[in-house]
């Protein structure tokens, strides 16, 4: 009996501190923001209950939908940029020679750099006057292609997506290399006997073996792209004229720049809902792939 009590005491002491801290800072805020979404509150004074007004305003605001669309552009850029680039590189980087290891470290390097620094450097790279992109274009005689990359609303969302791709290729590369190394070597031999080589082997043997990993990477891209904030905030702040607004910058600008904490809470709740929907969709995507795999 005494030892049971001892175990219980031990468990309480080991689990409670983390549990309290985690609940207070990670879990409770979700419910807190859903609740505060029903209030008009400027941060000082009393909050007044206004029912669904904030939530309705969010849904009716075209800028919210533009932000959502921009987030989807980031998702698309990650899925169709990061994944193929990382996969292609992984196919070339399976060995562990000194050169190959160097290339791998170089590709992973941006992962340890502050996202603020990444945003600032790329802001300079895109700079209309001395930025390297415009300088290069001028140097090769394509002066007509130069433009203010971050200010031109017709392309700035894509310009903003490139540093994000650049920033996060590393982990996908490592995931793909690990998956490639897990393909049993008997399959390689079998493919050789069947006469499949090079490109044929890639299409018929290697890629099918990688499907599951590729799907995991796609799911990671989707959840990761919703977290995009820092680089965009530093490069454009969501502007000009809110053309590069993301859900997170929209939330920030509508809360801390204009002191509308109730409205910001409603937007926060919408961000949670959007990410839940995306997580469910990507889980379904994974499941279907699994079943198809079993069917074959």
């Amino acid at each position: 009996m005494q030892s049971v009590l001892k175990v219980k005491g031990m468990l309480a002491v080991t689990l409670l501190p983390a549990l309290l801290l985690y609940s207070f800072f990670v879990i409770i805020p979700i419910f807190w923001s859903a609740y505060y979404g029903f209030f008009e509150w400027s941060g000082v004074g009393d909050a007044s209950f206004i029912g669904w007004a904030n939530y309705l305003e969010v849904i009716k605001d075209p800028i919210f939908w533009r932000a959502l669309k921009n987030n989807m552009i980031i998702v698309g850029a990650s899925v169709f940029g990061q994944v193929p680039i990382a996969l292609g590189l992984a196919l070339m980087l399976r060995k562990s020679s000194l050169f190959q290891r160097f290339v791998r470290s170089a590709i992973f390097l941006p992962m340890v750099i502050s996202t603020v620094v990444v945003g600032l450097i790329w802001g300079y790279i895109y700079h209309p006057q001395f930025g390297i992109i415009n300088s290069l274009l001028t140097a090769v005689g394509l002066e007509s292609w130069t433009r203010p990359w971050l200010a031109d609303p017709s392309i700035n969302m894509y310009a903003v997506a490139i540093p994000i791709i650049w920033n996060y290729i590393g982990p996908y590369l490592i995931i793909f290399i690990a998956a490639l190394q897990n393909i049993p070597s008997e399959l390689d031999d079998a493919a050789k006997i069947d006469g499949a080589d090079g490109f044929k082997k890639l299409i018929h043997v290697t890629l099918p073996m990688m499907w599951k990993t590729i799907m995991v990477a796609v799911v990671l891209c989707i959840s990761g792209s919703l977290k995009a904030f820092d680089q965009v905030f530093v490069m454009t702040g969501g502007g000009p004229a809110q053309s590069t607004e993301l859900l997170a910058t929209y939330m920030y600008n509508n809360t801390f720049m204009v002191y509308r904490y109730g409205y910001g809470s409603a937007v926060s709740t919408m961000i949670i809902i959007v990410s839940l929907i995306l997580i469910v969709i990507s889980q379904l995507l994974m499941k279907r792939r699994d079943q198809e795999g079993r069917g074959i």
């Binding site: 409770i28 805020p29 979700i30 923001s33 977290k227 904490y261 926060s268 961000i271 990410s275």
Partner: peptide, 14 residues
Amino acid sequence: LIPIHSTLVPLFTL
């Protein structure tokens, strides 16, 4: 799974 940005406003007020 929880996006950090969605907790900014409530954490600020808390």
